[in-house]
Design a protein around this nucleic acid. Sequence first.
DNA 1: CGCATATTAATTGTATACCATAAGATTTTC
DNA 2: GAAAATCTTATGGTATACAATTAATATGCG
Lengths: 247, 247
Amino acid sequence: MEKLKNKRSSPSLARREHLSPPGRHAALRETSTDSLSQRVYQALKRDIITGVHPPGEALGEKDLAKRYSSSRTPVREAALRLQQDHLLKIIPNRGYFITKISVQDLTDLYDYRAAVECACAELAAMKGMNPALLERLEELANTEYKVNDRKSYENFISRDTEFHLSIAQLARNQLLLQAVEAARCQMERIMYAAIDIGYYGEFPGREHRGILDAIKKRDSRAARQLMYDHIFGSRDQVLKLAGGNPR
Amino acid sequence: MEKLKNKRSSPSLARREHLSPPGRHAALRETSTDSLSQRVYQALKRDIITGVHPPGEALGEKDLAKRYSSSRTPVREAALRLQQDHLLKIIPNRGYFITKISVQDLTDLYDYRAAVECACAELAAMKGMNPALLERLEELANTEYKVNDRKSYENFISRDTEFHLSIAQLARNQLLLQAVEAARCQMERIMYAAIDIGYYGEFPGREHRGILDAIKKRDSRAARQLMYDHIFGSRDQVLKLAGGNPR
DNA sequence: CGCATATTAATTGTATACCATAAGATTTTC
DNA sequence: GAAAATCTTATGGTATACAATTAATATGCG
């Protein structure tokens, strides 16, 4: 502890010293985020995922500040987080650039998903019996969508993400959950990009139900395997598409 | 505080042809530190890992700014990144708190490590034949340390991390590599904390060599299994320790 | 004397000013 | 007229000023 200053600047630290530490179980519903940084982050993230800002686009701090009605500071903090999410690349003294997604990035992403989501499925089957969440998963697994109907498909994307996130939640592992969240950002981006070239993915309802059933039966082996098959099935679809439309 | 306006006399910093390439090599130790934010991040991270700031400690922006000779802005950016690394928790309008590591966090961390590092070992055996890296791994696997010699053990911690990171590099997957980096932060923190209670982990040389051999023989199945055993062996040691010394 | 409320001090969130750097425009020189 | 050096301008990195929020203390009322 610093004992250098016995002046008026030390009581602040002393006061904070015995503050209650951050609890992990603070499961606050962050519906409407308060801070401006958060709002900018959410808004910009959404705009990148949905393709408002296309890959490769250069963004200046001042423009972003104007666009999202804030100053440069919140934009800067948002950008830092978006870089962690691999949605933005910050080049020092140059600015921000929306990340491009190469074929290499795609295979990396799917390998990553396989690693973390298979673990989630396995752990979900072993650990997590959360009736409310299972109920919700049942609902999500039965979500349909109409092909060539953009609005309907966008809704499906959201449900698809919620399905995978819910399984991660069943695994009750914060690190894995955050990893899946990061992966879903990229997946949503890819799915939105696919819409623009008229591609609506194959409906994964059957696979989702299979995974869910395995979890409910607490068959961790099957849950992992089915998740693996699901992810690599998706991978093959996307890679076939990407191979035909190199970027 | 005296503020000299004429700070033009700093030619050493002014003339830097240090162009920063878009490619990222996050696995490397800090080269010549570029921005002040980076330096604060690195320094604070180090201090958290090595236990200079103990778990639960409250940190104020102003104090940190003074301690690391910067203003609040770089501190803020560093803190944001450290939160992503799970080393710091930012509570809005309250301040920063060094994260505590609960037993739950430990099991989460090891499950996470198992998910990502087993995938790395498998991919390393399948994909990556990098002679230079394999050479280095051989060296690292044979690193010994003297028990009850803090300096020697700290060196081992660094080598241990480099071993696991190098395998992640062999897998050639940026997402997995970053995941392993994040996990290693926590692992180093735990290992440093263990020193303070006089515990020096069991020497993993044999296990490391086993994993490396499997990778060199391109036996992905064995590589994954041996990594799994290695991680859960470590887990059991740590959990036994944490159970006896709850914190 | 204890509890509730107002006040105050200090800290964080946000905006902005300032400085260093990098890319572009202009001029100079061959 | 072209290449190179210099100047200009714009942008990002950092410091700081200002506003909003929080926790601590003080105060009034029962």
